[in-house]
Design a protein around this nucleic acid. Structure first.
Lengths: 218, 218, 218, 218
DNA sequence: CATGAATGAGTATTCATTCAT
DNA sequence: AATGAATGAATACTCATTCAT
């Protein structure tokens, strides 16, 4: 049993090393340019060991993508107690941005998108578990804000997407087209403007009253 | 003269055939999986002829992408005379969708995004000429709507992106993750909801008054 | 007739242009790297015209090589009247060097040598007409010098090669291994030393007496 | 350990097979005409294995050339004790010829020369290590002969080249132009004549006295 | 269980030569 | 006679995957 568990831990260490090396290689040049031999070398294992852990390049890539959205990145869900609707949404925005930028999620996204024709199921999973799941987390928070009377009742699913769409336009969309895209300096202001816009649409009268016009204005 | 023009016409026929075959092949499996030999075969030319027309795989791909956004004949610009703000925006939305779906622009976008690490300039061009240029067309229309008093004065550039972001969330984003993504049945309603949201944010009081609450609400 | 001769002159102009362009291209990177299409372009003719004049790449190369040694480079033969043996040999040396360096003969030699396995006949011809023929010219001069009593009677053929071998060691041999080899500054002195050595071997007593020891010495 | 040494031995066997096959292929038609695929086939390995051992065609060719002049085990240096100057030089001549003819050095030389424009460094190395290094070995022997009083003091470097130049004229030069050049029957006599000539130039009086005139003469 | 050498099919690109106009 | 577009075979090099040790 001691031996077995030792072996298991060694094996898991190697698995982790492989995943790390693979991730780096895939991010560097996309799926096609990543070479199994180089991944093995970077992970300090033989190619045979690599194939023991992941039966094919495809399987390895899938594992990386799934790791990315089941990773410990945490949920977007936020406790709303004691916070204004605006501050709650700001918190969500901050967390979203962290998730997007810290783990090179944008770069990973590019590769998933690239592989849609050859790995449609993977993309579907990523969309479900990466995109829609996060919208659901936002929806939960919005639901509570509606219940508290901060937001008007509305189609919560679409509402979350309206907010998300606006934010993505500044955070995700340009990142998809730019290698090593960095957070712009004015990104917080841009996100605040999106939140203000969102509150204009869906905020209860009392909640909307507060922000000063100029924050959105010309 | 007869010879020269004959040759030119033959040459242009072949060029078109190559572009068509190349487009199909690139769309089928992305940049890496497209094989120059197969493109040549599909276009009924020899590989040498293919290379006479396009000096490299990269050049061929670039040509296709540039064709895609210069080929999008219609601008998003719309004459606002006699139309309500809502109708103007609806027109823009329809045109946008047509551009996005008719020419497999989404599929092409995937490949451009995929190639960001290895062809950043191409992506930059595509973003400038494909994304930002269209925003500018929208901005012009918005400007006129503001001048006419339909919309409140606001940061037009960001305003256009707020609208665009919301729409893309339903039209473009899921398409990136789905092979052969088709227009959903309720897409017009979704876009209308985005427009309503936009008018809530930026519409002048008189303009916002009109829409019925239920169009946005649950 | 006027027309015919006009045509002939046009044709010969083109032929010359082709030969020139071909020569440059072959010299640049050797036989394999020279491309018929580029030669045609450089000569301002179509590939078809190029093939009208020379039926194949091989034929073109052969023509160039033959041009090189039937070229107007002149013979090594020198009138000995009124000149000492040493001065006669010096003249020959000067001419030899001019031939070798002015026309990029060394570079051409490299290509001929390179193509020995695939064009042995060409190399044989070049050796006969380029190397041995020149030895024969030298032999004639030496014969006259022997007749005049300046040189001892000896195997004239081998004698000429002894002299030639020594000179080549400084002039040709390093040039074969060096791209764009230039005449070294001390080349005249080196050649004089070879001539002195030659006269030591084959000079009649009276002729050898003259040079001062130090010219050969340590 | 057993595994490692087994692998090493297998690997070295393959490496040797590759070198042999490559050598043959390069010698057959020069650098350009040798095809990596055919070399691999001749060596009974896959192209991939070929590339494991030699990272490029260039690297493979370089390895062959370097093998050629480091493989020439015997130096030209000869112990002079108890031998006349003439016999010492004869020994050197014999060794030189063996080196030149046994290993197809002449054929290899052709290819190196051919590749001067595209691989100048290789040619430079070959000249340094193949040509000049041997001259230096000869120079050492000559130095001892001078010290012993067999030869007059002279510029040893040039002296060695005078001798070498004369010999090459008969041994190397025609070989460059002739595929499968074989030692001519009278080659020993030719070399002896060169040595005699050399001793006429640089031999001390006592040493020169001995040879019979007819050996050089007509 | 781990290794890394070996595989062979696959890829972009080039080039001498031909032929319809 | 002259053109230049078209050909198709050839070539160096890569890579996911397997297997003998």
């Amino acid at each position: 049993m001691g031996l077995a568990s030792y072996r298991r831990s060694v094996s898991e260490t190697k698995r982790a090393a492989i995943l790390k090396a693979a991730r780096e290689n895939f991010l560097k040049g996309g799926y096609s340019r990543a070479a199994m031999a180089e991944i093995a070398r970077d992970a300090d294992v033989s190619t045979a060991t690599l194939y023991k852990h992941f039966s094919s390049k495809d399987a390895l890539f899938t594992a990386i993508v799934q790791d990315a959205y089941t990773g410990t990145e945490g949920s977007l869900y936020t406790d709303i107690t004691g916070l204004s609707a605006r501050d709650v949404l700001r918190n969500i925005g901050r967390t979203y941005m962290r998730q997007q930028f810290d783990g090179q999620m944008n770069a990973l996204l590019r590769i998933v998108i690239a592989e849609v024709p050859s790995a449609p199921q993977l993309a579907r999973d990523a969309y479900q578990n990466g995109v829609l799941a996060r919208y659901d987390q936002i929806r939960q928070v919005i639901e509570e804000l509606v219940a508290r009377g901060d937001l008007k009742p509305h189609n919560l699913h679409d509402g979350a997407r309206h907010l998300g769409g606006m934010v993505k336009e500044f955070v995700v969309w340009p990142a998809l087209f730019t290698p090593d895209f960095q957070k712009p300096d004015d990104i917080d202001a841009k996100i605040d403007a999106c939140i203000d816009a969102y509150l204009k649409i869906y905020g209860a009268e009392s909640a909307v009253a507060r922000p000063r016009e100029k924050e959105i204005g010309t």
